[in-house]
């Protein structure tokens, strides 16, 4: 605990990697106006793992999409290393900020092989990586995520299992080796026994490469296991934030309390 606090303190002194300031997203207008994200602010520090935790409709995915520049904020701004991301060149930004998506099925274009899926990653590197270098890097990345390149490299998505696809997405992120990885429900389609393996892999990557990870999830157990800090989101707002252990053990917000009470745990049986 002491070590973790010391680590947190040293992070606080460093410059944040990503700063989200008063981020707001409004869909529709007039009567149909929906405020999906409502004045959200937070920072992510280098090497840190955090979770943006919320139920469906909380605005967590919309927040993630804005951070990834897949959606424009209505108000507020996002700074990466102090620069407004809207002012950066797309490829320059995406070389440093990458994502793993939720659905390992719809994340693959069924017309292209694993090889061409992975080779897309090299566009962000410019053109100075030769074909044979690319091949070697792909094989290495696949090995790191526990996949056999020889067997899988020229397969089509429908020949792969959900777990293999999810690992491939991580391999793709590895090839780009970003400074921040947004992981949107990266294990929702994966069985419990394999889920931990994938999360451990991501945590090791963060530790070994100094990569920051932001999990976007509804799974409190996942967030608690992986993250240094939690941000709890409800109806477009961040209602509670803090170190994972503190938030889970001493929630102060009413919504967080209810959420935690409704999550089945092993130690207690619900009074029903």
């Amino acid at each position: 605990m002491v070590l973790a606090n010391a680590l947190n303190n040293s992070k606080k002194q460093r410059q944040p990697l990503l700063q989200v300031e008063n981020l707001t997203k409004v869909f529709g207008s007039g009567k149909n106006e929906v405020i999906a994200v409502d004045d959200v602010s937070f920072e992510i520090y280098p090497g840190e793992i955090i979770s943006l935790l919320g139920e469906s409709g909380s605005g967590k995915t919309t927040t993630a999409r804005m951070i990834l520049r897949l959606s424009q904020p209505t108000r507020g701004r996002i700074l990466f290393k102090g620069k407004d991301i809207q002012a950066m060149k797309g490829v320059d930004y995406w070389r440093q900020v990458q994502a793993i998506f939720q659905d390992p099925f719809s994340s693959f274009n069924s017309f292209y092989s694993v090889h061409s899926f992975l080779s897309k990653a090299f566009r962000l590197k410019g053109n100075h990586v030769s074909k044979s270098q690319q091949r070697a890097m792909m094989e290495e990345a696949m090995k790191k995520v526990g996949l056999n390149a020889e067997e899988l490299l020229f397969k089509r998505p429908h020949e792969l299992s959900g777990g293999q696809r999810q690992r491939l997405m991580i391999a793709r992120a590895l090839l780009i080796s970003p400074e921040l990885l947004i992981a949107d429900e990266p294990t929702s389609m994966i069985d419990a026994s394999s889920r931990v393996g994938i999360l451990n892999m991501l945590m090791d990557l963060s530790r070994n490469l100094g990569m920051s990870i932001m999990f976007i999830t509804h799974d409190i157990g996942l967030a608690y296991y992986t993250s240094d800090r939690l941000l709890i989101m409800n109806k477009g707002r961040i209602v509670e934030r803090g170190p994972s252990v503190e938030v889970v053990e001493n929630p102060t917000d009413e919504y967080t309390r209810r959420l935690l009470a409704d999550v089945p745990t092993l130690s207690k049986r619900w009074a029903l």
Binding site: S193, S194, L266
Partner: peptide, 25 residues
């Protein structure tokens, strides 16, 4: 045992050690 061991619940024991899943499929 392995399945129970890979359950991620928001409880202390989960953070106190590294949890291992079950290798293989």
């Amino acid at each position: 045992k392995a399945l129970m061991g890979s359950m991620l619940v928001p409880e202390r024991h989960v953070r106190e050690q590294r949890i291992e899943g079950i290798p293989g499929v």
